[in-house]
Design a protein around this nucleic acid. Structure first.
Lengths: 219, 219, 219, 219
DNA sequence: AATGAATGAGACTTCATTCAT
DNA sequence: GATGAATGAAGTCTCATTCAT
């Protein structure tokens, strides 16, 4: 009995993986059940044994996609010491988010490509998950601001939208084999936390402080 | 004679505007010629009098989209004084980019939604325009770095990708009636230029310098 | 007034010629009004000033086609002396028919290509003309048979169908620049009138007898 | 297992037969997939399960058409004794060709009607088969000429074109229920081999012989 | 006489989905 | 669990035809 279930589960996974890859490459409407079936080494009709419809399939892919990001980021944050700084948390979260997006897979890529075209109901359901992810980020930033690490006059909500926007857009240009995720994460954190401004020169300058660490970063 | 030309041009514009709206809402494959025709108050077959195919239509929408952004940003930058600071340039460019994206219209929204699904050839053609736009940004940032305004160790290319990513993602959450473009532009510039860090507190602290100028920024 | 009529007539001729060429190349359903218009250097809508419909156009082309053949053949035959032999008449008619078909033009070629696909009513009307042409041939052959030139046991109707079939099929393989019409006409006449048989050798040979009896013919 | 294969094959045959009939009646561009589907008792979309496109369908019909003729004629010739005369071979081939054209079916009729309008590539492919058939005829005639049966001065190539033209044209007028194929084949052979000329009378005559018998042949 | 613009019908084709086997 | 065959709805596009100008 377990065996039978197992076989079914394996097929189901194969279909899901195939679906993610195809949705990723062709978008929602551009994806055909036959294409998914081919990728999963099945016939189109057979998919319906595992998933009731195309919509149920895309819904599963979407949910797995965001869950993967949420889980990866949450786990990475949990692994930090209690007293980690805001900078550390942000850098960690950015790194984890990018890892999930880039590494973990076709699911997140499929999500990005497909999200705007999926039937409203499916999108709404997935959106709830994504919003809870947004809250997580908001908490990190608000917390750091409360502790005095971040400027009191910064608009945290807009900052969060800026950060998540930049992160999500990464998949549009990131190519494995070029820059590493580490580099990208570090530099993103640096822009967000420190800004581009040269504080030695300052705007009005006057300050003689050297940049506190060897923040050198050649590309 | 002018009237005749006008009629054709008007229809063409009506079709194009309709196409942008529908592509924006339903993506490339999700958009039907009939839907565009309905929106333009024509019959589906009539579109073909003005555009040879769906692909030619989306191509036109895509090109208009990026051209609008390029033109708006270029004009805004030209209006700046010769000696404008990097911060000023960035803030101006961000503002202009957001204005174009949000204001000028559905074209840029359509672009965002459709880009990943459009036939390769069309995407490639449009990409050339977009790359030239990227160069414009790169120039602004490099220039400011050269003049000592921005940290020498900042990776300008990544910073640029980061900024444009965040800007382009804006359309996903920006709703007219809420925050103004001015606010968003100012805050985005602030994150990019100053970072989130509170320089008074500093990370390592030690520094006793007060923030040198009236960096006040109401939100 | 005559001038105006003239202009109209010229345009009409231009449309007709264009139609013949396009019908010839693409068949009835394969021909579009726009293609004809292009060939005639007009816009599609303008054709309707001269002809009420596509059907009226094809009908005109069809009628001109057969009329040209009829006229050419009739004139050629009239030019023969009263006492011309059957062989002479046949050779003359074959030559004239081929000339018309090949030389005179696209009309007859269009007819051949289009005939089987044209609406029944149009075909029927044109068929009446063609039948009268068939009668002309029948007369030539019957006459020759009556005068004892041709075998009394020959089935004239079938012979006529054979000849006209072979002639009409010519357009399928005849290419100007290769064999001349004269050659083809002479050889065709020779096959029809003399047969391929070598009379010196005979079939049974040895016998000086003409094959007197029921020339058995195994199937 | 055999049953499953059978079902597919049967449907495929049904579609093919239907296609031949419809192409025959309406030509290539005049034939719609729906019309074929109706004739085959299917829905239009279902045809695509068996054939990838209209072109693949017409191509299949065309190839079957010529193959049928080739096979029928080849088999008939093989059944002849080694020493069969040229006349016998021709009569046999004509008879077989007509049988195939008339009897075996709509395929050859469809070919005739459709050939001039089919996309070039398809026509070229089919033409290769047809040319090999032409060679077969050429061989028969050349052989007979070599053995002295046929006049040495006859142009065999033209004679062949003449014969095949007349044969192919038959479908334009032959109606089952009227003349039998036997009659037509015999008479066509007679025209080709013997010619129409009355050899007793000759052209120069001098002969006073009446046509030897009542070799009457009613139509 | 001719044209630009539009229409409506219908063509080929694709595709999600169903169901008997 | 899976497949072959079929369906019906819908999509892109073509085309004969109309009509105001």
């Amino acid at each position: 009995m377990t065996k039978k279930l197992a076989k079914s589960a394996i097929s189901q996974k194969r279909v899901l993986d195939a679906a993610a890859r195809i949705f990723r490459d062709f978008g929602y409407a551009g994806t055909t059940m036959r294409a998914i079936a081919d990728e999963a080494d099945l016939k189109a009709g057979s998919i319906y044994y595992h998933y009731k419809s195309k919509d149920e399939l895309i819904s599963a892919v979407l949910d797995i996609g965001i869950h993967a990001v949420i889980d990866t980021v949450q786990n990475a944050l949990k692994a930090l010491p209690e007293d980690a700084s805001g900078r550390q948390r942000i850098e960690t979260a950015i790194h984890a988010h990018l890892s999930a997006i880039i590494d973990i897979g076709d699911y997140t890529l499929a999500t990005r490509r497909v999200f705007g075209q999926v039937p409203e109901a499916i999108r709404a359901k997935n959106m709830r998950l994504r919003n809870s992810y947004g809250s997580m980020w908001q908490d990190i930033l608000v917390e750091a601001q409360k502790r005095g690490e971040f400027r009191a006059d910064a608009n945290i909500t807009l900052a969060r939208l800026f950060i998540l926007g930049a992160l999500n857009w990464t998949v549009e240009w990131f190519k494995p084999g070029g820059r590493t995720i580490d580099d990208v994460a570090r530099e993103f954190s640096s822009v967000v936390v420190d800004g581009l401004l040269d504080k030695q020169a300052g705007e009005i300058s006057g300050s003689a402080q050297p940049p506190s660490g060897p923040r050198v970063r050649a590309i």
